[in-house]
Amino acid sequence: MAENTNLQEQYRKKKNKEEMKQQVITFVLMILFTVIAFGMVIYELDKLFVIPTLLILAVVQVGFQLYYFMHMSHKGHEMPALMLYAGAFVAFLTVLTLSVLIWW
């Protein structure tokens, strides 16, 4: 029994470690995305290309943050995901409205 818990403990630690490795990779990617974003602006690439790319990079980065750093990829996050996406939906409508529906 004691041995069994010990094994489980070891297995858990190993799994945690693997996940941590993933998270470090995520972090490196996020830094890379950030550098690309700043780079594109500093080197003054074409605006029509830069703005959508910036937004895509930001959304992907936020996805990383949510799914890996905040563990949304784990089990038991169905309700958090539902409410976060619902919030994101209202957020999207709000930002869209205030950007295009205010006269000028």
Binding site: M79, L84, A86, G87, A88, V90, A91, S99
Partner: peptide, 17 residues
């Protein structure tokens, strides 16, 4: 987590503004 869902709307309103 739900609170963070609400915060999303809060910051969206600020971003929209």
């Amino acid at each position: 987590w739900f609170f963070l869902g609400g915060e999303t709307v809060l910051f969206a309103s600020l971003f929209g503004t």
